[in-house]
Computed example of a mutant assay.
Amino acid sequence: MAREHARVEWPPNEERREMLRRMFRIRFFEERASSIRVEAKLPGVLHNSIGQEAEIVGACMALRAVDYMTGNHRSHGHPIGKGAELPPLMAELFGKKTGVCRGKGGSMHLAAFSVGSLGESGIVGSLMPVAVGAGLSARLRGTDQVCLCFFGDGAANCGPFHESLNLASVWKLPVVFLCENNGYAIHTSQAQTTAVADIAQRASAYNIPGVIVDGQDVLAVYDVVSMAVAQARSGAGPMLVEAKTYRYCEHSEFGEPADPPPYRSESELVLWREKDPIEIFCARLEEAGHLSREEIETMRKEVLSEVDEAVAFAERSPVPEPHELHDDVYV
């Protein structure tokens, strides 16, 4: 039976500040990318994670710099949460050669090896076996690295989910599987597609722990993922963590009707807006005396400037040359 996790410990002061800074970076990066796409400056599609910043940052901050991470199609935030710089990420969205994938990956295929981000994919669930491979690699090389694997509730109904959890459990690999359960696979609610109420319940089928955590609470996520990472690093095997979260934006920002189908009620949106993870964390920091309102506002302005600089970097960067088409594709 999956259990809920509620214990929360304050991380050190510098980590608390960095948590908030990275949450701001994700929110402002994606808001800016969205506005630029409306201006038709970005090619392709955007899948933003606005509203999910706490579970991304809380989980990534529980890792070491040398640990690995895999994302999914909604993954601008994951490399940011792991510590990647904004300019190369923004340049990748623009399709520029200074991007993290030299302009060939785009929004759904970011990879930032410098921070251990092994990649993302538009194919739902496809990075789960990659995460298992990263865990196996660490085992074979004799390191104590851990791989954090992000996936959505929709991916939990795909074959790679079951294959990956089973193999990781059998071999006791150092992988933490984190389900970002925002309640919807595109426009379809979890209740319409999934027999169990909680994805974490499925952990018992693979003889691993399953834990549910409030995905809007960055400290709670940090706490439970730290516990899962410690278990994985010790050789005790994987854990399945389910973060209950929500996306405020639509599934994607390209190719959808101007008025999306009414799959979410206005009252539901209002309820989750009241659980804004950034506002919750700011209030807790201020209440505990860790950061003043002035310090928080200063940080907001600093991060907005970082995003401005990232956009300027992307705009002045060159596009890839035609002769570079096959570079980095074949060995």
Rank of each mutant, 00 (worst) to 15 (best):
W10L: 13
C101F: 00
P129K: 09
E92S: 11
V132M: 04
R300A: 07
G83Y: 02
S34Y: 13
A230F: 09
G116H: 01
S49M: 14
K41A: 10
A59L: 10
S267D: 14
S234L: 11
E279D: 12
V218W: 05
F150C: 02
A33D: 07
E287R: 09
S75L: 08
G210T: 10
G125D: 11
S204C: 09
E18M: 04
V132W: 05
V66E: 14
E85R: 08
G133W: 07
Q192I: 01
D276Y: 03
L89Q: 02
G71C: 08
T188Q: 03
G51H: 03
G105F: 10
Y68R: 03
M108L: 13
S107N: 06
P87M: 02
G105M: 09
P209W: 05
E163Q: 09
A155T: 04
E53F: 04
L304T: 06
R139T: 15
P129W: 13
P43H: 10
T298Q: 14
L178G: 02
S75M: 05
G125M: 07
T194A: 09
A111Y: 06
A230M: 10
P11Y: 04
G135I: 13
G83E: 06
I123H: 06
E18R: 03
L271G: 02
T245W: 06
F281W: 00
A220M: 10
A185N: 14
E324Y: 05
P318C: 07
P322G: 12
L304Q: 15
P238Y: 02
C282N: 09
S226V: 06
S265V: 04
S267E: 15
G58F: 10
P79D: 06
E279G: 03
D67Q: 10
L136S: 05
R284D: 05
D223I: 11
G99Y: 02
W10N: 03
P238M: 03
K97G: 00
I199V: 15
P209C: 04
V311W: 07
N182S: 03
F150I: 10
L136I: 14
I199Q: 01
L93D: 01
I212V: 15
A243R: 01
H323K: 11
S234A: 15
L20M: 12
N181M: 05
V100E: 01
N157I: 08
L165D: 02
E31P: 04
H73K: 04
T193Y: 00
N207Y: 05
R16S: 04
I280E: 01
E55L: 15
E309S: 14
Y68H: 13
G237H: 04
I278Y: 01
R264W: 11
E315D: 13
W171M: 09
M90C: 11
L110M: 15
S164P: 05
V45F: 10
L140N: 06
E180A: 03
L271Q: 15
Q190P: 00
G154R: 05
F113Q: 11
P238L: 08
G106Q: 08
D308F: 02
D67P: 07
Q192P: 00
E163S: 09
P238D: 03
V329F: 12
T188C: 02
